[in-house]
Simulated assay, not measured.
Amino acid sequence: MLSREVHRRRSSPAARWAATAIAGLLALSSLALVATPAAAHDELTSASPAADESVEGVPAEVRLVFSGVLSPEAGATAVDVVDGAGASIADGAPVVEENTVTQALDAASGASGAIRVLWRVVSGDGHPISGEYTFTVSAPPSPTETTTAEPTTPATSEPTPTPTASPTAAADGDDADSTFADVWLWVVLGALAAALGGALLYLAFSRVRRENALRERDPQDAGPRSDHPADH
């Protein structure tokens, strides 16, 4: 009799509902926890020269700083710096040091105008990211000749003002917005999964309590039963 009662309780619909709800909740929670960190990839946080910055003459190098440590694998990082005519002024391969990439430039190239920086790196989690930005190179001022009005009185020329650089923050806006949207998407999915699982668990255990209460109030169902005709 005890074994039949235990089997009946284990195979009740309410118990099966509870087991199914718990399994579904665990699966959805695991998916949300695994997917949310994967969406938060590294991103470009600063650059020198910065985006839209104006500098005098071609700088010696371009330096890119990212939010996390980059992959040091050969070929994982690529940087190209081109002038307005599309000619590359990069000098050699980029150097990766943890979260910083340095690309040397050919300062003697004489390039001027809009300079494009195109980069591609691999995050520490193995996800490749890429982007580009533009800064401006102004030609250095040409030297001014001095003239002498009299042999003993040399004329002096006024210094030519140099343009002032206007640094701006460099950021890959499209990658940051996409990463932020991906993270919030998984946070919302995780919250919905938790709410659904909680509702299923509440319904399942409410049904189990109702069945137990009915069995306690029904003495025939709760009392022992005899299988011999003489007992009836």
Score class of each variant (00 low, 15 high):
residue 220 Q to A: 15
residue 14 A to Q: 14
residue 33 L to G: 10
residue 189 L to G: 00
residue 212 N to Y: 10
residue 214 L to M: 09
residue 112 S to M: 04
residue 76 A to E: 06
residue 147 T to E: 10
residue 80 D to I: 03
residue 101 V to Q: 06
residue 151 P to I: 05
residue 25 L to S: 03
residue 187 V to H: 00
residue 128 P to M: 07
residue 95 V to N: 08
residue 217 R to S: 11
residue 116 R to Q: 13
residue 18 A to L: 14
residue 106 D to I: 07
residue 136 T to E: 07
residue 13 P to K: 11
residue 157 S to W: 00
residue 118 L to H: 09
residue 128 P to E: 04
residue 143 P to W: 02
residue 32 A to Q: 01
residue 177 D to Y: 04
residue 195 A to V: 00
residue 127 H to F: 05
residue 200 L to F: 05
residue 31 L to A: 09
residue 25 L to K: 01
residue 104 A to N: 11
residue 222 A to L: 15
residue 31 L to F: 04
residue 147 T to H: 12
residue 160 T to F: 01
residue 132 E to Y: 04
residue 50 A to R: 02
residue 8 R to P: 03
residue 12 S to H: 12
residue 177 D to R: 13
residue 161 P to R: 07
residue 152 T to Q: 10
residue 201 L to I: 15
residue 4 R to K: 13
residue 138 S to F: 04
residue 40 A to V: 10
residue 148 T to A: 13
residue 30 S to Y: 01
residue 97 E to T: 11
residue 54 S to T: 15
residue 222 A to R: 15
residue 79 V to F: 03
residue 159 P to R: 13
residue 54 S to M: 12
residue 87 A to N: 12
residue 65 V to L: 08
residue 121 V to T: 08
residue 108 A to T: 14
residue 167 P to H: 05
residue 79 V to R: 08
residue 13 P to Q: 10
residue 163 P to F: 07
residue 37 P to L: 05
residue 89 I to G: 06
residue 221 D to F: 13
residue 18 A to Q: 04
residue 186 W to E: 01
residue 73 E to Y: 05
residue 200 L to D: 01
residue 28 L to V: 00
residue 138 S to C: 03
residue 130 S to G: 11
residue 23 A to H: 02
residue 211 E to F: 10
residue 191 A to S: 06
residue 155 A to V: 06
residue 197 G to I: 00
residue 172 D to W: 02
residue 34 V to N: 07
residue 140 P to S: 09
residue 137 V to I: 12
residue 201 L to N: 01
residue 26 L to M: 10
residue 176 A to H: 07
residue 77 T to I: 06
residue 86 G to F: 03
residue 44 L to M: 13
residue 83 D to F: 02
residue 20 T to N: 02
residue 192 L to P: 00
residue 13 P to F: 09
residue 46 S to H: 06
residue 207 R to L: 14
residue 15 A to S: 09
residue 93 A to R: 14
residue 90 A to D: 07
residue 91 D to M: 14
residue 149 A to P: 06
residue 182 D to N: 14
residue 163 P to Q: 08
residue 17 W to S: 04
residue 118 L to I: 09
residue 145 E to Y: 03
residue 67 S to N: 04
residue 102 T to W: 01
residue 143 P to R: 09
residue 167 P to N: 07
residue 159 P to K: 09
residue 201 L to Y: 02
residue 232 H to S: 11
residue 26 L to T: 00
residue 93 A to D: 12
residue 227 D to R: 15
residue 91 D to E: 13
residue 189 L to T: 00
residue 229 P to V: 10
residue 145 E to H: 06
residue 127 H to Q: 13
residue 135 F to S: 12
residue 209 R to M: 06
residue 91 D to C: 05
residue 148 T to K: 11
residue 108 A to M: 07
residue 76 A to Q: 04
residue 1 M to Y: 12
residue 198 G to A: 15
residue 164 T to M: 08
residue 142 S to Y: 00
residue 205 F to E: 05
residue 2 L to E: 08
residue 91 D to W: 08
residue 101 V to G: 10
residue 216 E to H: 13
residue 95 V to W: 02
residue 33 L to F: 08
residue 217 R to I: 03
